[in-house]
């Protein structure tokens, strides 16, 4: 494909990238200053001299009451939240979207609306009753309890429904001629076809699970479930005026917290490109 690329395109992209990335750069720069410096001067544009000490402390310090809350522990928990949530979401929502798009069955409309009304109410609004439900199911202080309730939303299902609906009907007809049943059609044709979509939704959902804060605080009483996000919030949350929050450590943790999601992005970019070539067969 030979499209003309104008310098203007690059200019727009560079401006857009700058607008979006500038705060990230500021976070990185700020993480190299001391807490008091940040408190006095505000956000930093240029690097400071305290990077080594701050990052060393953040990575190695053992926090919490038990002394077991290390950077590694927090990363592991955040990973479990991110991957567990993203995988769970993709599996559940692809299956449900498949049923809703490719089948005719009783009360399909009812179930369609039952699932899609869940777009409307975030967990925060029903968080107290949700806690009671989890307690009755004995799921407090478990990874299952941390992840599964978050799956009760239709974002993924909606997204895959949109994609499945735009898959050409000829594919199904051809598959049927080849003698493929619904299960075979799903796994052999739709799943590979959805690669780009899965990559996109994986990135979004991974970050969503990775960034959870309020639900884990409510749900767990055991320090071994501590996540990076709780670490960051707890640093920033000091009694106003009595002490200066360790801004530098919060920024450093935030910079570290970006690494895995960015890694996910880089890995899934390859799938973006693959998705592009494969859907072209």
């Amino acid at each position: 494909m030979m499209q003309k690329i104008k310098p203007l395109d690059h200019l727009i992209l560079i401006l857009g990238a700058l607008f979006l990335i500038a705060p990230v750069v500021l976070a990185v720069m700020s993480s190299t200053h001391s807490a008091v410096w940040i408190h006095t001067n505000g956000i930093a544009l240029l690097p400071g001299t305290d990077a080594y000490a701050t990052y060393k402390k953040v990575l190695t310090a053992r926090g919490g009451f038990t002394g077991d809350v290390t950077g590694a522990r927090m990363i592991l928990n955040s990973m479990i939240m991110g991957i567990g949530f993203a995988v769970g979401k993709i599996v559940l929502s692809m299956m449900a979207a498949y049923a809703l798009v490719y089948f005719r069955f009783r009360l399909a409309t009812l179930f369609f609306w039952m699932i899609f009304t869940t777009l409307l109410l975030p967990l925060e609004v029903r968080i107290m009753p949700s806690y009671q439900v989890m307690s009755e199911l004995h799921l407090l202080n478990t990874y299952t309890g941390l992840i599964v309730p978050l799956l009760a939303s239709a974002t993924g299902t909606f997204y895959f429904r949109q994609f499945f609906k735009s898959v050409p009907d000829e594919l199904l007809e051809a598959a049927r001629i080849d003698g493929a049943g619904p299960v075979k059609f799903f796994f052999d044709i739709l799943v590979p076809l959805s690669r780009t979509m899965m990559a996109a939704i994986f990135i979004i959902m991974f970050v969503y699970g990775w960034n959870q804060y309020l639900w884990p605080i409510l749900m767990t009483t055991d320090e071994h479930f501590y996540t990076l996000m709780r670490g960051i919030k707890s640093i920033l949350q000091v009694w106003v005026g009595s002490q200066i929050p360790d801004y530098n450590e919060a920024f450093a943790l935030a910079v570290l917290a970006m690494i895995p999601p960015v890694f996910v992005v880089v890995v899934f970019q390859r799938m973006f490109i693959k998705g592009l070539t494969e859907s072209d067969k």
Binding site: I21, V24, N211, L236, L253, A257, M258
Partner: peptide, 9 residues
């Protein structure tokens, strides 16, 4: 990657 920055930060 901007999407990955922690909300509190």
């Amino acid at each position: 990657s901007v999407y990955a920055i922690a909300p509190p930060v």
